[in-house]
């Protein structure tokens, strides 16, 4: 049996006295398309940050393609591309520069990095903007640039934190098509979203998180059965909210 793309064991993360993630166990299989759902404050982004190394955690272990994210962080980080919620680009660089430098941080030489950057900009229809300042891009273009940046080092795992938030319907479908395409080609995708339609259409596995604990994990069709995913999700969360 192959090593999971992401293996989380007993993860605990506290912010002061607030426990954001409580003893979380989670496996993400290679090649899976996993939707990581939960209400605001459930611990989704915190979990992502622990996996990617943006967050320190109190206890537990996280392995990415078999590499521990703390002791073997360099190998683990090579395997992940993160597409965050916010547009956190370096304001001193052009759009192409953002991608070329990001590839450089991953050890990719300048010539190769430029080829990769241009290929991605072309794929996401940003080529004509390559010399511009990112602040001049529209919201949808910035979202596409986030995806380009996450992919420029060709990671095995793509983690998306609400990738279509604020996107218009055309962009949303473009992103969905692209995600299906790269998932079919073998990339593992870990998606957090508040759009249940997005999770239902794209994912094969659903994990529902609530107050830092997993409420449900299983295949997407099995989870919602003959109901739509949003209805089933709301039932589950409301049941959990009703518990003392």
């Amino acid at each position: 049996m192959s090593v999971p793309a992401i293996a989380v064991r007993g993860l605990v993360k506290d912010y002061g006295s607030f426990r954001a993630v409580e003893n979380l166990d989670l496996d993400v299989e290679r090649g899976d398309f996993l939707a990581f759902l939960g209400p605001n404050g459930a611990g989704k982004t915190t979990t992502i940050h622990c996996v990617t190394g943006l967050c320190r955690y109190a206890s537990g272990s996280i392995r990415v393609m078999g590499h521990d994210v703390t002791t073997d962080y360099r190998s683990a980080r090579r395997r992940i591309g993160l597409c965050p919620q916010e547009f956190n680009f370096d304001p001193f660089l052009s759009i192409e520069g953002i991608l070329v430098y990001q590839a450089g941080y991953f050890g990719i030489g300048r010539a190769d990095a430029t080829v990769r950057a241009r290929r991605l900009l072309d794929r996401f229809r940003l080529s004509d903007k390559k010399d511009q300042d990112f602040r001049k891009l529209s919201g949808g273009m910035k979202r596409r640039l986030l995806l380009c940046r996450a992919l420029v080092h060709d990671p095995d795992i793509l983690i998306l934190d609400e990738p279509t938030a604020g996107a218009d319907i055309e962009l949303k479908y473009q992103i969905w098509d692209f995600l299906r395409e790269i998932n079919s080609a073998g990339k593992t995708i870990f998606l957090t979203t508040h759009y249940m339609e997005e999770a239902e259409r794209l994912s094969r596995t659903v994990v529902v998180l609530h107050r830092g604990r997993i409420l449900h994990r299983g295949s997407t069709p099995d989870f919602h059965g003959d109901k739509d995913l949003e209805t089933r999700y709301l039932e589950l969360v409301r049941e959990a909210e009703a518990e003392p």
Binding site: Y73, R74, I80, N88
Partner: peptide, 18 residues
């Protein structure tokens, strides 16, 4: 400080740089 302020320090923290 600016990279912390704009949060583009994440570009480094996500990379395999030691």
């Amino acid at each position: 400080f600016i990279s912390r302020w704009h949060n583009h320090i994440q570009e480094l923290l996500l990379s395999p740089l030691s």
